[in-house]
Nucleic acid binder design. Structure first.
Lengths: 227, 227
DNA sequence: CAAGTATTTATACGCTTGCATAATTATAGC
DNA sequence: GCTATAATTATGCAAGCGTATAAATACTTG
């Protein structure tokens, strides 16, 4: 039994070696993260194997370890990417929004309860990661930061909206309101992601805004078209 | 190199063979499911391997396949067990509750937003399974059934509470209310499971009831201690 | 108490996984 | 253009996975 590994001439093997380009570090990291998200979205977290990710990124598995010390680091980076993407998309909605604080809160809610944030893929990703949070302290910390950041942003919007409606807006009241409104958004987001097809278009956003108006005791629509 | 498998006398090997008892079929299934839930709770879905589950159930891996054709069947059974357990616990709270519909709704909410339902382990389990729902149609159906069942129960409670407060309770209004209240419960449950330690005891339940009162426009506390 | 059967263990196979390491190659700087 | 180096591929390994199957054993039934 001849040892092919030693006997075979090197040049012959190299004829079929894959050609490649050197990409910038940032580009590669982004590509790998994007490929990871594709895998998770399509086949769940279990489908995001090193080999499958590499395949999607048109790269060899080994390269992943060149950019990420361990697979978990890539997974964690992907998680942060999803959360930050959703955060940015929601914040973007504010940039193009009216200047009235109530309209801004309304726009924020609508953005979170519509495409592309309210998407089954996002839920799949989010859920998959949450399942790990309990075991991995580092990811737990990352998650808590994201959650608190979201709630803080929400609390600021709520405070401004309350003030604009001449309502009291102490920290004690805005805190509790933020918790409740956050729950409404999260809960409806969940429902929409899980079974979006059983709801009419925009129904969840409307329901959410109505519920939030009730909780805050103010109207979020600017009557009379004030500037 | 002698072939131990063939040369070794059988009797010697059997000296260390594990002794066992034959349990009833139901008992074994329950034990296996319980062991599965332990694994998922402690180390995530990925930690629920056939071998680990068998270890916890004090059983050999092979036995699992005797009761469940494939591992996925066990996982699915475990998922259904969790959901049904939570549903039953919430319904139990109603059995011991006041007869006033408003108090019943209040008790239902409180039960869902406290121990043992609002527990990080339950979230871990739930999230892990949700990650699979997207890929597995059978589990997706199981999940949707559970969700709609919960919402239907909630809608009935809401209708009764509204009627008790002399408020209109058409299907069109109860449906939307059920969606909103469901979101509040889910959202707060989520927050509590993920970061229960940053909330005071009972804070989430109180917040939830206050928010629901606002949404429904009724009070859930029976003033004057009516029977 | 003997025989039969349902339950349980034991063993092993084939596959996939994450990770390590050495060989190769594209690119940048002199 | 040459050379050094960083980026990428290729190869392989050890461990763990789910699953298959045969042997062993506890219980049931007569």
């Amino acid at each position: 039994m001849p040892d092919k590994t030693c006997l075979a001439p090197m040049k012959i093997q190299s004829a079929t070696r894959k050609s490649f380009r050197r990409e910038g570090e940032d580009k590669r990291r982004e590509d790998l993260i994007a490929a990871t998200l594709e895998c998770v979205a399509e086949r769940g977290l279990a489908g995001a194997t090193v080999r499958e990710i590499a395949l999607r990124a048109d790269v060899t598995p080994g390269l992943i370890r060149y950019y990420f010390p361990a697979k978990d680091d890539l997974i964690g980076a992907a998680y942060r990417a999803v959360m930050s993407r959703m955060t940015v998309q929601a914040s973007d909605a504010l940039k193009n929004a009216d200047s009235d604080p109530r309209a801004r809160l309304s726009a924020f809610v609508t953005a979170n309860l519509g495409a592309p944030i309210m998407d089954p893929h996002n839920l799949s990703l989010w859920a998959g990661f949450i399942g790990l949070v309990h075991a991995d302290p580092a990811m737990a910390a990352a998650h808590r930061d994201g959650y608190l950041g979201f709630r803080d942003e929400l609390e600021a919007l709520i405070r401004d909206a309350l003030l604009a409606a001449d309502k009291p807006a102490d920290t004690s009241v805005t805190r509790r309101h933020a918790i409740a409104v956050n729950a409404i958004i999260d809960g409806l987001w969940l429902e929409g992601c899980l079974a979006g097809d059983i709801f009419a278009d925009g129904e969840l956003a409307e329901t959410g805004i109505a519920a939030i108006e009730a909780v805050l005791g103010i109207s979020l629509s600017i009557k009379g078209g004030a500037k």
